[in-house]
């Protein structure tokens, strides 16, 4: 057992680097200049397919007394609609419930790959995925705001707070930064950084176990501690996964709410 492990450990690179996030190409197999299809791509396709198929199948013949699948699908939708959309947007939150549910379930499934055995990396640990999701929410809340307030009046509403004129030069740059620059950035980076750090943490403790066993006979017992730690951190990851999916959805709803808000 120990012999096998040290053979394994000889090939294990430690410490993990950012390079570990760039996985080898699958199609064409092992190519070094063609990365259009990697494990990341595969996981995303599987997520999308799984979500579409699950919701189609569970709603194909809706029953008044729901089957188990239908109950799960309705619970997910009902949770987002009641606890996020309606809670934050009031009655008109119903109109945004489909978008928010799609966002929530997509991020949840994409994040979940971080702790699925054999997959164990989330596509969201690449900034591109959160960035696109944030861009969609960003464009949407601006569009909603412009539609609700009427074109440029939205920007007037968003940028000019109710304040005496002589403080406005101080306040308008702050409003501009916090609404139109920080929001999309923080939305994307929060999700990305959480998934990136989570993957990195699991790598450190898993690979660290091998590194310890490889380094010195006296360190070998501590590798067990390291692996136990990585199991514990996997449970922590599960918490982070759900929390980040929820936070992203809640903040998207909150931005829409801000765009729809009237002067008070």
């Amino acid at each position: 057992m120990a012999g096998q492990l040290s053979v394994l450990a000889a090939e294990v690179p430690f410490p993990p680097t950012v390079e570990d996030f760039y996985l080898p190409s699958i199609v064409p197999w092992g190519a070094h200049n063609d990365y259009w299809f990697t494990k990341i791509t595969l996981l995303m396709w599987i997520s999308v397919a799984a979500i579409i198929i699950f919701f189609l199948v569970s709603y194909r013949k809706p029953k008044l007394v729901p089957t188990k699948k239908q109950w799960i699908a309705e619970s997910i939708y009902g949770f987002v609609r009641n606890n996020i959309a309606v809670d934050m947007l009031g009655k008109r939150g119903i109109n945004f419930a489909p978008y928010l549910t799609t966002l929530f379930i997509f991020i949840l499934i994409m994040n979940f790959w971080a702790i699925v055995p054999l997959a164990q990396i989330s596509p969201n640990s690449h900034i591109a995925f959160p960035a696109i999701l944030a861009a969609i929410s960003y464009v949407m809340f601006i569009y909603i705001g412009m539609k609700h307030h009427g074109g440029l009046k939205y920007f007037k509403h968003a940028l000019i707070p109710p304040a005496p004129w002589f403080i406005l030069p101080l306040l308008i740059p702050i409003e501009f930064f916090s609404t139109f620059l920080v929001r999309p950035f923080s939305l994307a980076v929060r999700l990305f950084a959480n998934m990136f750090a989570g993957h990195m943490l699991l790598l450190v403790f898993t690979l660290g176990g091998f590194a310890l066993i490889n380094a010195n006979v006296w360190f070998a017992p501590f590798s067990v501690v390291s692996w136990a730690m990585s199991i514990a951190l996997t449970f922590l990851e599960f918490l982070v996964i759900c929390l980040q999916a929820y936070v992203f959805t809640v903040l998207s709803a909150s931005y829409v709410q801000g765009a729809l808000a009237d002067e008070h």
Binding site: N82, G90, K91, R92, G93, I94, S178, V182, S254, Y255
Partner: peptide, 27 residues
């Protein structure tokens, strides 16, 4: 998770704003 009564009505009660904390910190 029952549907709220009278859906797609417009702005009846002002919703409790859960995103306030984040907005404040951002400011």
């Amino acid at each position: 998770q029952e549907p709220p009564k009278n859906p797609s009505g417009n702005d009846d009660p002002p919703p409790p704003d859960t995103g306030m904390g984040m907005t404040a910190v951002a400011y």
